[in-house]
């Protein structure tokens, strides 16, 4: 394997950086690794920016997030940065606000990403009602398609009552 920078010598230093779910790799020869200052494993943590520069072939670009507006929870004013710092959310609406990327995190913590346990009785009721309505609507559509108008009228009344 040849060095990524000089493309002449055998690569002896291998750097890997994981950003989110993307992995970046750099292979360097001894001379180039010294030149870039990444030959000493004890200073490995300070290598992050070097790796970015080497990969990009130019000095690292300024943080793009500084120009982007930070998303805040409309209910409680919590930001993504607050979550990163505390590991907890600000309120129950934060789960909707910061829903993106949540599933990946939940996968590492839990058996699944969907709730299969207890629900408040009020929710169970609304869910059961919604299911019943859906079924009635289906039967109504079928009755109309079959021009079975007597049954359709009955179903229409039942849907009205359920709603």
């Amino acid at each position: 394997m040849l060095c990524n920078v000089c493309k002449l010598n055998e690569a002896k230093v291998h750097l890997t950086k994981i950003v989110g779910d993307k992995m970046q790799k750099v292979d360097l020869c001894e001379d180039c690794s010294k030149e870039k200052g990444v030959d000493d494993p004890t200073t490995y943590s300070s290598e992050d920016t070097f790796l970015g520069q080497i990969l990009a072939g130019e000095p690292a670009a300024p943080e793009p997030s500084s120009t982007e507006p930070t998303v805040k929870c409309p209910t409680c004013g919590y930001s993504q940065a607050d979550f990163k710092k505390a590991g907890r959310f600000g309120c129950s609406d934060c789960y909707a606000t910061f829903g993106e990327g949540l599933e990946g995190m939940l996968k590492t913590m839990h058996k699944g990403v969907r709730h299969t346990g207890k629900s408040p009785a009020a929710f169970q009721q609304t869910r059961a009602e919604a299911q019943k309505l859906k079924l009635l609507q289906k039967r109504l559509d079928k009755a109309i398609a079959e021009e079975n108008f007597e049954e359709a009228a009955q179903l229409r009344d039942e849907i009205k009552r359920t709603k």
Partner: peptide, 19 residues
């Protein structure tokens, strides 16, 4: 209660989410 049919009972720390 703060409850979502998909995520269950919503908790301050996501490690307690669901049940």
């Amino acid at each position: 209660y703060a409850f979502s049919p998909e995520l269950g009972y919503l908790t301050a720390c996501p490690t307690n989410l669901g049940t």
